[in-house]
């Protein structure tokens, strides 16, 4: 019975794991907000990389410390469905952004293109 209690405790986290997750989340939230609020002199792309990088790390912190996703939970089905969803999201997001920005660029008439059309008239 005591081992089962211990296991249940582990399955849904302990005060310690919640505090670790919370502490990490606070740091990972404050850094990107500080970059924007302090208007620190920083390269735009570096700032965006930091914001997205820390956001991704914070998502992983939430998944492991708050949602308690482990490889063993639900005999692996939980992590497998999560990886599957992640792949779908990657395809949808990267695909949409890639295709639509190219489409936007191609729909914008460049100056030389406008001139060429004028010459035809």
């Amino acid at each position: 019975m005591t081992t089962q209690d211990h296991d249940e405790h582990e399955a849904h986290g302990s005060y310690r794991s919640y505090f670790i997750g919370f502490g990490l989340s606070v740091v990972l939230t404050l850094i990107p907000f500080w970059i924007v609020l302090s208007e620190v002199e920083i390269n735009l792309w570096l700032a965006l990389t930091i914001i997205f990088g820390l956001g991704a790390v914070q998502i992983m912190v939430h998944v492991s410390y708050f949602l308690h996703v482990t490889v063993k939970a639900e005999e692996g089905w939980q992590v497998m469905s999560m990886v599957f969803t992640g792949i779908l999201l990657l395809i949808v997001l990267v695909g949409s952004i890639w295709v639509m920005t190219h489409l936007n660029n191609n729909m914008m008439p460049a100056h030389d293109q406008i001139d060429r059309v004028r010459e035809l008239q």
């Binding site: 849904h12 939230t29 990107p32 907000f33 970059i35 924007v36 735009l44 700032a47 965006l48 914001i51 997205f52 820390l54 956001g55 914070q58 998502i59 939430h62 998944v63 708050f66 949602l67």
Partner: peptide, 29 residues
């Protein structure tokens, strides 16, 4: 209660994407 726990933490996780992508990135660009 355990189901709502998953739901609640999940919404916090989505919010990470919202504040990073919509608010912080939006103000920088």
């Amino acid at each position: 209660i355990l189901c709502l726990s998953l739901f609640w933490h999940f919404l916090d996780l989505i919010w990470i994407g919202v504040f990073s992508f919509v608010y912080l990135t939006g103000v920088l660009l």
